[in-house]
């Protein structure tokens, strides 16, 4: 491993195992590999683990394992990691650019001095990496946004952004999972529901997955949205 990790106490029942402070795909892959290694180790007393950009949050029950002992286990697991062994699933996510959810497409294209078609081509021409699922159920944070599309967040968040909105926040991209307020900019919507508690797999994407966006028209969006409302995940991952 190239970087020495830092372990940060996060109260009496959690600790943060920090591998990197920036946004970096290699560090993120290391975090995800460590989460998998922790699962495989089956350490009694570990209650949750949350991979994020550069850190792994691990929750534990001090009645079953103390933080100091857990730290030693994590350091050993990290030292023995083989990051290359991690499989990466690929999802092809249909997106209707513009439309109801894509309320910023036209203005963003104007700001960037390009046509909406060029902006769309740039957005769906890139491959994205799921850096983490966080904030809200199923909310998918993506890296890999082409630099010309990097756009600061709004100063005043909007109160209602629908589930499935395809967003841009700074250098990150997103697939929104639940409706709610957001200061990000939105260029389209997917009929895919990243989170549906009634589905057998309530959360589709996981940290480390790869995502390609594929443009669809409004009629296809409506047809797929009806199937999604009936509980269909619509898409399945490749590369399992």
């Amino acid at each position: 491993m190239t970087q020495a990790p830092t372990i940060l106490p996060s109260g009496d029942r959690a600790l943060t195992f920090r591998i990197a402070e920036g946004i970096d795909a290699a560090a993120n892959a290391e975090v995800i590999a460590l989460a998998a290694a922790l699962d495989a180790a089956g350490i009694d007393g570990v209650t949750e683990r949350v991979p994020t950009y550069g850190s792994l949050l691990v929750c534990y029950d001090p009645e079953r394992i103390r933080g100091a002992a857990l730290e030693r286990r994590l350091i050993d697991l990290h030292a023995a990691l083989d990051v290359r062994a991690q499989p990466a699933r690929l999802w092809r996510v249909p997106v209707h650019y513009g439309g109801e959810a894509g309320l910023d497409l036209e203005t963003l294209a104007e700001e960037k001095r390009m046509s909406p078609e060029a902006l769309v081509a740039l957005h769906h021409g890139a491959e994205y990496r799921v850096f983490m699922i966080g904030f809200a159920p199923g909310f998918t944070y993506l890296g890999g946004l082409p630099e010309p599309l990097h756009t600061p967040r709004l100063r005043v968040p909007r109160q209602f952004i629908p589930a499935g909105a395809i967003g841009i926040g700074g250098r990150q991209a997103s697939v929104n999972s639940v409706a709610g307020p957001s200061g990000w900019r939105f260029i389209g919507g997917t009929p895919v529901r990243p989170f549906d508690p009634k589905r057998r797999d309530p959360v589709l994407f996981a940290a480390g997955d790869r995502i390609l966006f594929e443009p669809i028209d409004a009629a296809t969006f409506d047809r797929l949205a009806r199937r999604a409302a009936e509980g269909s995940p619509l898409i399945a991952p490749e590369g399992m």
Binding site: S10, G11, E21, V50, T52, Y53, M132, F135, A136, Y141
Partner: peptide, 29 residues
């Protein structure tokens, strides 16, 4: 900061300088 994991009890400090203690329904990051 680059987003990382939060727990119930986390004391976040946004730009306002007013601390925010996360509780049972905290966001996860």
């Amino acid at each position: 900061i680059v987003s990382d994991g939060t727990v119930a009890g986390s004391i976040q400090v946004p730009g306002s300088g007013r601390p925010l203690v996360l509780m049972a329904e905290s966001q996860t990051t």
